[in-house]
């Protein structure tokens, strides 16, 4: 773990040991299925919002590779402790494919920075 990246976790009640001390993340989602359902909801609602729709295209042409930052309150998704989610899409074989998603703001969003040596 000497890569100095930064990792945010989906708060699913994980226990992670850092320097011999256990840290428990809050439990916003009870299972992977629940998380997948949440992401489907976020993507579907973002796609229906004209502001986010505009960001999927460049002058009417689908963008091949891009990220959006979704304000959950704006799209009407309420999850305690997560306010903003970043989604990364690619346009492949005629459709937008969600490549990854991660939370960026909210009180349950924890950040682990290996290069810095701990939780922030």
């Amino acid at each position: 773990m000497d890569e100095a990246g930064k990792t945010t976790f989906w708060p699913m009640g994980q226990r992670i040991v850092v320097n011999g001390q256990a840290k428990q993340l809050p439990k916003v989602f009870n299972s992977e299925e629940e998380l997948a359902r949440f992401l489907r909801e976020v993507v579907n609602k973002a796609l229906k919002d004209p502001d986010y729709q505009e960001k999927f295209f460049k002058n009417g042409v689908p963008k091949p590779n891009f990220g959006i930052s979704v304000d959950l309150k704006k799209v009407g998704v309420n999850v305690d402790g997560i306010d903003v989610v970043k989604l990364e899409f690619k346009f492949e074989d005629g459709e937008f494919v969600l490549k990854t998603a991660y939370p960026t703001k909210g009180w349950t969003v924890e950040t682990f920075i290996p290069g810095k040596g701990g939780w922030q």
Partner: peptide
């Protein structure tokens, strides 16, 4: 200095 994780094609496309 350390890099941010990046899809470098997307970076230039942006």
């Amino acid at each position: 200095l350390e890099g941010d994780e990046s899809d470098v094609y997307r970076f230039f496309y942006n």
